[in-house]
């Protein structure tokens, strides 16, 4: 079992996401994350998919994706590729000590504090998924109100 990230260029037609996710469901592929947005090409979107499985499963996933007519190009991301994820976390704090701790953890992680209320603080973390996971682990002793993650996006170097 290994994590794989692929970046696919698709024709931006109605139903393309339904086709891709339907295929994953039908073929029993377990997707860690999927992120979608426009690309540098007009009328095309880029979808980045993170997937954990053995190399056979991964090969099948790529081949099955290729069969979808909307899929124009598939790129596998190398191990040293640039992968990022954005995560927003809203955490409760009981006292000023807790608040100060959260702020100083965030400094180490280079997080942004984007909102503070009477009893919550909202942090923005950008980094590879491991960094995000580690940070969430680090603050798990606090009561977390909400986590929103964009899923992995990324590209190869150079």
């Amino acid at each position: 079992m290994q994590n794989h990230v692929i970046s696919i260029l698709v024709n931006n037609e109605p139903g393309v996401l339904a086709k891709i996710s339907g295929m994953f469901y039908r073929r029993n592929f377990n997707i860690d994350s999927i992120s979608v947005g426009s690309s540098e090409k007009y009328g095309m979107s880029r979808i980045v998919i993170s997937f954990t499985g053995d190399s056979n499963e991964f090969e099948q996933l790529v081949k099955q994706l290729h069969k979808l007519i909307e899929v124009v190009k598939i790129k596998k991301l190398e191990n040293d590729s640039l992968v990022r994820e954005l995560c927003l976390i809203k955490v409760y704090y009981n006292d000023s000590k807790a608040r100060e701790d959260l702020i100083s953890y965030s400094e180490v992680y280079k997080n942004k504090i984007i909102d503070i209320s009477q009893d919550t603080i909202t942090l923005q973390i950008i980094g590879d998924p491991d960094k995000v996971n580690n940070f969430i682990k680090l603050i798990s002793k606090y009561k977390i109100k909400e986590i929103c993650r964009t899923g992995t996006t990324g590209m190869n170097r150079g």
């Binding site: 056979n56 090969e59 099948q60 099955q64 290729h66």
Partner: peptide
């Protein structure tokens, strides 16, 4: 002709 059939059930 369909690469997905190669290696799907039998290597």
């Amino acid at each position: 002709i369909d690469p997905a059939e190669i290696g799907k059930n039998i290597p």
